[in-house]
């Protein structure tokens, strides 16, 4: 049943957050957001590193393939990619992927492309003399990579990778369009179910969602800061 206006109107709108299971539902929605973005991030970082190394190859075919892949993913809005994977696979091949799996596929494709480009950028930003000096010390190419290049690359990558992960977390707000109810949609459901009794509930609920996103992304950037400091020496 809908809750009606008359006697409820005097309570502050934020109180609807504590009615029924609303707050727990909002946290449940946040968990969906975090789960999808973390699975995608964990998969796309190693894949992106491999892709980045692949992009450094001088082979023209490899260059063309990675260029097309990267630009395709970059040019396509994430929403279009989500629709292609979620509805397109069903229309074309009769494969019925769940919304959450489709979201993870798209986010991994996207994350791998972006991460790959970041890795490529970080690798090519290492000055040539680093390779040459290491070689002059008698290191093998493998040792050069392990002891000289990769540590420097990782440090340069951290802020960029963190930026990518937080962007992923925020982009999960699109997946509601393929039927995955995450934190933002849960918030909208709460606002709407109470819209007759609390017409002004939108602002406080969106405010709470803002803090939920903030407290999700903030620890990640703290971790990044810590790692950057630690790996400096």
């Amino acid at each position: 049943m809908l809750v009606l206006a008359i006697d409820a109107a005097r309570e502050p709108a934020i109180s609807i957050l504590f009615r029924g299971n609303n707050f727990v539902r909002l946290l449940g929605g946040l968990w969906v957001t975090i789960r999808i973005s973390m699975i995608s991030a964990v998969l796309s970082i190693p894949l992106g590193i491999l892709f980045g190394i692949f992009m450094m190859r001088k082979n023209p075919a490899a260059k063309a393939v990675s260029r097309v892949y990267l630009d395709f993913i970059r040019i396509m809005p994430q929403l279009v990619l989500l629709f292609i994977v979620y509805f397109g696979t069903t229309r074309a091949f009769g494969i019925n992927l769940s919304g959450e799996l489709s979201a993870i596929i798209v986010f991994v494709l996207w994350g791998t492309a972006e991460m790959g480009d970041l890795v490529r950028g970080a690798l090519s930003s290492i000055p040539k003399h680093q390779y040459e000096s290491a070689a002059a010390l008698g290191m093998t190419p493998m040792e050069i990579n392990i002891y000289v290049i990769i540590p420097q690359t990782l440090r340069r990558l951290i802020p960029l990778a963190i930026n990518l992960i937080t962007r992923m977390i925020k982009t999960t707000s699109l997946i509601v369009l393929i039927g995955v109810v995450e934190v933002l949609k849960t918030g909208q459901q709460i606002i709407d179910a109470n819209r007759f009794a609390f017409p002004t509930a939108a602002l406080p609920i969106y405010g709470v969602i803002f803090f939920l996103y903030f407290f999700t992304c903030w620890p990640i950037s703290l971790l990044a800061k810590y790692l950057e400091k630690r790996w400096k020496n």
Partner: peptide, 17 residues
């Protein structure tokens, strides 16, 4: 719909109504 009260919405207990 899960956010078009009173036709399709989710109540405070998380049930479709």
């Amino acid at each position: 719909f899960s956010d078009k009260a009173p036709f399709g919405y989710v109540d405070d207990k998380g049930e479709y109504q």
